[in-house]
């Protein structure tokens, strides 16, 4: 079945043009809603072992404003990765807002920190972020890959994550094939 799916995908989907969105991490916990105040900076540290191209942060808002949000992504050692300013009007109430950047290709797990700052808010729109009791933000880490690359990546990733199970699983499959041949 996997092989059939693999063939279908390869035949039908143009690999160069059809990339799909992928979520690598998802966390949403709205125990505490924190209102962003002007020039206050909030941050979130995270570690990741997969290439990623976006951080999506959950916002709630009241009122419409022409303000601006600054997003900054740094490696934990302080090296800047990405920095940009976003119009506040694009932040939709009750949705994850995607801060996208060039795909970060990782050879090994790395730690990053992202910062969000409300730098302009002329109409005093109220913008909230969601946090849990340990002060963790509600956010997602996502990216984009071709389907083929995605299958290869996740297959290898999952085998590395659980080698004992896959050893057992492949032996089981071989066992069934062996018995079938012996009958």
């Amino acid at each position: 079945m996997i092989l059939i799916l693999f063939i279908i995908i390869n035949l039908i989907i143009p690999k160069t043009t059809y990339a799909v969105y992928e979520e690598y991490f998802f966390y949403k916990n709205c125990q505490n809603k924190e209102a962003l105040t002007l020039n206050q900076q909030i941050s979130q540290e995270f570690s990741i072992d997969k290439d990623f191209g976006a951080i999506e942060v959950y916002f709630e808002r009241e009122g419409i404003g022409d303000g601006k949000l600054e997003f900054r992504l740094e490696k934990k050692n302080g090296n800047m990765v990405y920095n940009n300013i976003y119009p506040l009007e694009k932040v939709i109430n009750g949705y994850f807002f995607p801060f996208g950047f060039e795909t970060q290709q990782l050879k090994q797990p790395e730690s990053f920190v992202f910062y969000i700052k409300l730098i302009e808010n002329p109409n005093n729109a109220k913008i909230y972020v969601c946090k849990d009791n340990k002060n963790n933000l509600s956010y997602k880490i996502s990216g984009e890959r071709s389907v083929l690359k995605s299958i290869i990546f996740w297959s290898l990733y999952n085998i590395r994550q659980d080698p004992y199970f896959f050893a057992f699983y492949f032996l089981l499959l071989l066992g069934v094939i062996f018995i079938w041949k012996r009958i």
């Binding site: 799916l5 989907i13 059809y18 969105y21 979520e23 996740w154």
Partner: peptide
């Protein structure tokens, strides 16, 4: 239902095919 194979399957839309 193929999401355990690769996370990308959650986001494939049939219209593309």
């Amino acid at each position: 239902p193929a999401f355990p194979v690769a996370n990308a399957f959650r986001f494939i839309s049939l219209d593309k095919i």
